[in-house]
Amino acid sequence: MGAKGYIARRAAQSVVTIFVVAVLMFVLFRLMPGDPTAVALSPALDESVQQEMARQYGLNQPLHIQFIRYMASVVTLDFGYSFFQNEPVRDILMRRIGNTLLLMGTGLLLAYAFGTSIGALAAWKRGSFDTRVLVSAVLFRSTPVFWLALVLLYVFGFHLEWFPIGHMVDAEATYSGFLDKVFSVDFLHHLVLPVLSTVPFYMAYPLLLMRTTMLRIEGEDFITMAHAKGVRDRDVFAKHAARNSLLPIVTTAPIVVGLAVAGNVLVETIYSWPGVGRTLVQAVLQSDYPLAQAAFLMIAVIVIVGNFVADLLYTVIDPRITYD
């Protein structure tokens, strides 16, 4: 089987996984304590209004009909109306997914760039540099994201006032579009603290893994051979040792994406970042079921797509992978 067949099969598997998550979501939300109708339909309203609203939301239908309608809505990406914001759930999330991906993407990109290169250098240089890196990495790995976020917020936002304490842009600033906003100094200024809160935690995993793999790869015969060939040290390091050590880094990337999704929910909440994570927390607190369901599903999709991309990358960087 060729590469195309493999990609098609992995894509199909991803779609099935998303479908299963969607079913689980439906079941879980109906197992949760509390009656969704009691939240959405205020008892203060007139009986006939209540019934009319229940009909609108489809809450008066039997469970299996609700399920079919729910799955149909998943397929058509129509998640209905938010209970509280009186706006289609899809519109709310579409506005926020970009913000979440920006924050998470920046954090992951920096974490991987720094994590892999520092990990590789630590293994290459050894000695006291390695020890210091190792201690820092273990420290980073055990520092909870929410704690670091609060400390940074307090020190650099509240106390020193170097950075804004929340939101994506200044309240008074106006931008003509998404890109205009994203490439503004104002936005970058707001981005610093939330990203700094996540990078240490995200980078610890690739750093430690890179370091360990490098130490193993350095003992391989092809490294000795590269030295024997008279290849310059920095090329042996970059082209052979580090290049080969990247393979497990890519394999484990989905784990870090999973961590990042969880971390993002916390950071978005602490820094009032208008993303999917914060929306999710608010929706759950307000028992805004349609919004919460769709937000959960969206986060699941991010993780599943992350896995899929990692698998594709792996076929590119390791020639030994066969497609069957």
Binding site: E220, F222, T224, M225, A228, H240, R243, D318
Partner: peptide
């Protein structure tokens, strides 16, 4: 030049 003990592993797999 060196012809190494383990030709199996002396070539970089990537």
């Amino acid at each position: 030049a060196l012809i190494s003990q383990s030709a199996m592993n002396a070539l970089d797999p990537v």
